[in-house]
Nucleic acid binder design. Sequence first.
DNA 1: GAAACCGCTGAAAAGGATTACATGAGGCTT
DNA 2: AAGCCTCATGTAATCCTTTTCAGCGGTTTC
Lengths: 336, 336
Amino acid sequence: MAVSIKDVAQRANVSVATVSRVFGNGPVSPELRERVEKAIAATGYRPNLSARRLRSQHSQTIGLMVADIRSPFFTALSRVVEDEAYHAGMRVILCNTDESAEREAMYLGLMEEERVTGVIWAPTRGTIERLADDDLPFPVVLVDRGGPVGRHDSVVLDNHQAIATLVRHLHTIGRSRIVGLFGNVSSTAVDRHLGYLAATASLGLSSEAFFVAPNAEAAEREILKVFSRPDRPDGVIASSNLMLLGVAKAMRRLGLRTPEDVAIAGFDNETWSELVGPGLTVIEQPVGDIGRMAMTLLFDRLKTPKAPARKVMLSGKLIVRGSTAPVTGLVDEPVE
Amino acid sequence: MAVSIKDVAQRANVSVATVSRVFGNGPVSPELRERVEKAIAATGYRPNLSARRLRSQHSQTIGLMVADIRSPFFTALSRVVEDEAYHAGMRVILCNTDESAEREAMYLGLMEEERVTGVIWAPTRGTIERLADDDLPFPVVLVDRGGPVGRHDSVVLDNHQAIATLVRHLHTIGRSRIVGLFGNVSSTAVDRHLGYLAATASLGLSSEAFFVAPNAEAAEREILKVFSRPDRPDGVIASSNLMLLGVAKAMRRLGLRTPEDVAIAGFDNETWSELVGPGLTVIEQPVGDIGRMAMTLLFDRLKTPKAPARKVMLSGKLIVRGSTAPVTGLVDEPVE
DNA sequence: GAAACCGCTGAAAAGGATTACATGAGGCTT
DNA sequence: AAGCCTCATGTAATCCTTTTCAGCGGTTTC
């Protein structure tokens, strides 16, 4: 059996309360404190967190629920959240929902059983609407995907602005038939789609949107299909990192040159974005700021539970690379 | 205050023991079971995991300690481990050690306080040697980096074979001055370095190894330095994913063509490996198998604590891409 | 006919910590 | 010198479950 607070107390010849106070910064005379610390060192005592949590009713734990940790944005987010959490003396429970409402519900239940302090959550579209009804027994901060009514705190990218930036950029380099490729599950995709429609309309451009599963393979298949038609687009905007990779793969498969034949752009800047093809033009999300802001909102919420919900929008940053370089040569002197 | 087992018992007009038994599959008559289940549904009762753990002395939690979740291999590993864990009804606590012995020690302490069932751990080189002394109060399975003496269960890639495969492959396509670039912290790098020395020696090739921090920037800087010398290598093997990216960046920066001027290869197959430059030749690690095997070893260890330590080695798979394509044309008809 | 046994149930102990409250010593005021 | 604070300490209640143990009425075994 592991050593408990009682053993330490006995060895130091003090009461268990005193030992507890040594940990909790209660008032303890230097003399006793030293005796207790010696006993702790000698026995190798470690407080039992379950007992501590049970009694104190503070779990010091936050839940992080995302679709899939392997998605680059969520990978980066999780790292930030964990850093912030451990810095504040809290632990993180990580949940992969796989965009499944069922798994999401299961994990929300688990969060409740863990009596978490709060949850940072990128909810699936289906769940997010149901959300207003359930009164979750812990505060949540939505990330990446905002809630519908401003009922919860949230921190999201300004998707409208971001996608407009991309559309305008492609327009600037002379593209006019820009198609959009969006995920078919997240509400982020919905926002970006609306932004795409607005931006193309305001520039007097045609628009055509496709919705597929948010992974590289589905994106590649869809683009292959789109480009098998006679009137090929000259620009593609993908609403996520992995989908942009799928687009790049399709271009290579089709033997189309980027950016000469088709300019492509998308979201999230990664270590490898610069090296794929001629370099991928992307909107970089301030993922560090997003994570930290989410934690800030959560801690604020704990302090003032009744304060009105806050929705924070952060701006992305356009990073221009080869995949949308202007192709001056081609216009002046057509090849062959 | 949240609803407790007492409230449920009261409402169902049974004892708390009976309610507990309904959860724990103890013997309960159908009639009472139904009453209890109705009461649970009516009250929305969720068992308190802290109390449950305290009493039952089972945390149903495993720790996963890796250097950095953002490192692609660890990202993939974490997903597998979590899937397996949740499938077995357990939770996962994720720790990023940043290759720091101090953080590692801190997290090991935390694992103890959490009374984890076991830990899956990619230890830092410094710590791994100290490890024999401390008798950790929970079983650990080492991943990615094996322990020194066979004192702990471990599952690793067959690094010796993997790097030999890469060296032989580069030799086959006619490269003779192959340098190796290795991380300067993990024991994996040490293994791969030894394999590199053995493989080059057995082929009668010269060898030259460089050790840098395991990230893209450091790798890029080092390679730029190496290639500023007069006698340039014609092949580079990088011992990790991110370092290979650094190498690719350096090549682009130097204006060197891959594979014509320099063939490059490394580790870990990712969604984007195919799209960086002409496609990156890599050793693909069976990360799914590694994660599942680690869990299997852990569960076996829990069943038979006294069984001798097992070390499982899995083979990587060579994936040949453009970065090491044979350049037939050049030899026959020199350019210009 | 006593003893053993059955399947189900409830009372109560136990698990390891925190914390409200009580206590006692010492120092200060008046 | 009586009264009152302050401060450090100990006692015991408490957090919510699981689990041991005993008890129940009724059958089976010897």
